[in-house]
Amino acid sequence: MKQAEEQYQTLYKLQPEPLTTPEIKGYDFNQGVDFDALLNSYANFGLQATQLNKAIDIINKMIHWRLGPNEENQDPNTRCTIFLGYTSNMVSSGNREIIRYLAQHKMIDAIVTTAGAIEEDLMKCLSTFHKGDWQANDKEIRLKAICRIGNIYVPAANYGKLEDWLLPVFQEMYKEQKEKSFIWSPSSMIKRFGERINDERSIYYWCAKNDIPVYCPALTDGAIGDMMFHFNYKQDGLICDILQDVVKLNKKAMYSKKSGLVILGGGVVKHHIMNANIWRNGADLAVFINTGIEYDGSDAGAKPSEGITWGKLRVDAEYVKVFSEATLVFPLVVAQTFAKHFQEAKRV
């Protein structure tokens, strides 16, 4: 084999050079169980572990640049705005509590999400979701009035509870629209939902309390849209103007000194955030976590570098895509970034 390799190198005039990049090496549990050391070892683990380590590093850079002007040696002209995007299944799952933590402690500056992520957060304040089975007999559980999201069960009665809660809120908003000539946008509706739910378990309670805008360009695409239809069917005229939010989100990106993106999933949440960053010639830092592949031309599957061609990421941006289902890795990412920084700041 050695002789064959030498002949090959001679034939093709190869000039072998020693590799200078780090050695691939895993964690040695003979050292004990040290989760910080384990996750730090991911840097040279290879495959998606190394991608995850890079994601942690990039988010820590966002946090560094997000420090306020009162922090030592921090230039306010370089402050990073952090945009968080996620699809509804993140709120269906336990990632809801992770996102709530970020909003509770003002660790993010804006959210873009889907209708399901709004209504399910509210529903979880009114009732419960339960562990289910990927292999469930869907005809049988339909007859038991259970809806399924992967291996998560949602009692169909939850939607009735949401409707009973939501319709009076719509009535209140409709009255303000008529009496004060106030036109609602998805973000102002969501802020009102957060105020009225008045439950510290809610993501949007904390967003309303901490003045974190939540943009949902497809707010009608779910039970909330069904209930808007129900409301307007009986009392026509409640208006939701999405253009207001396009302007607000685009301006938030435009005026950001630095822009950092953390996006779980794809579709409208990913594109809406990235499209807003076109107005500043692209984001500076970006982390994408999803399972999409590029070969169908989908938004989720697209390589991050494709965004450079559209001006959604800067030519010199730092970015990474982690090919993973986000419930597996997002809690680990938050533990090594936002939560660690928060705990360290409390100790100072």
Rank of each mutant, 00 (worst) to 15 (best):
Q51R: 14
F288C: 01
I197H: 05
A43W: 04
K180I: 01
T337C: 09
T128S: 13
A55T: 01
I293S: 12
R100T: 12
E294R: 04
V112K: 04
V333C: 03
D284R: 05
R314V: 00
I141Y: 07
G225W: 01
L38T: 00
I59Y: 11
K25C: 10
G160R: 01
L249N: 01
I293V: 14
A339T: 08
T291C: 12
F330S: 05
R347L: 13
Y233F: 11
I108R: 11
K139E: 14
Y101I: 01
W310E: 00
G260P: 10
I108M: 11
V287S: 04
T337A: 12
N232Y: 04
F338E: 02
R148D: 00
F229Q: 08
G160I: 03
K252Y: 08
I99N: 03
I278V: 13
F129Y: 12
R79K: 15
I111P: 00
G311P: 04
M274K: 01
K2D: 08
A145S: 11
R142N: 03
R347T: 12
S185Y: 09
V334P: 02
S41C: 07
I278H: 13
V315E: 02
V154K: 06
D236V: 00
A43S: 09
D245I: 06
F83M: 14
I152S: 04
I56D: 11
E344F: 08
E172Y: 10
I273L: 15
V268K: 05
A103W: 08
M189K: 05
A110P: 10
I63E: 09
L47A: 08
H64Y: 15
M90D: 08
R196W: 02
T327F: 11
M227F: 15
P213A: 08
E344K: 14
L67H: 06
M173C: 15
M274A: 14
Q74K: 15
K191P: 01
R314D: 02
I263R: 03
F229W: 13
E172S: 14
D164T: 09
G237H: 08
D138T: 12
L122P: 00
A223K: 06
M189Y: 01
F229N: 11
Q177A: 10
Y101L: 12
R96D: 02
F323G: 04
I24P: 03
I152Y: 05
Q7S: 11
N275A: 03
M107D: 09
N290Y: 09
Q15Y: 03
Y215P: 07
A37Q: 15
N30T: 12
Q235G: 04
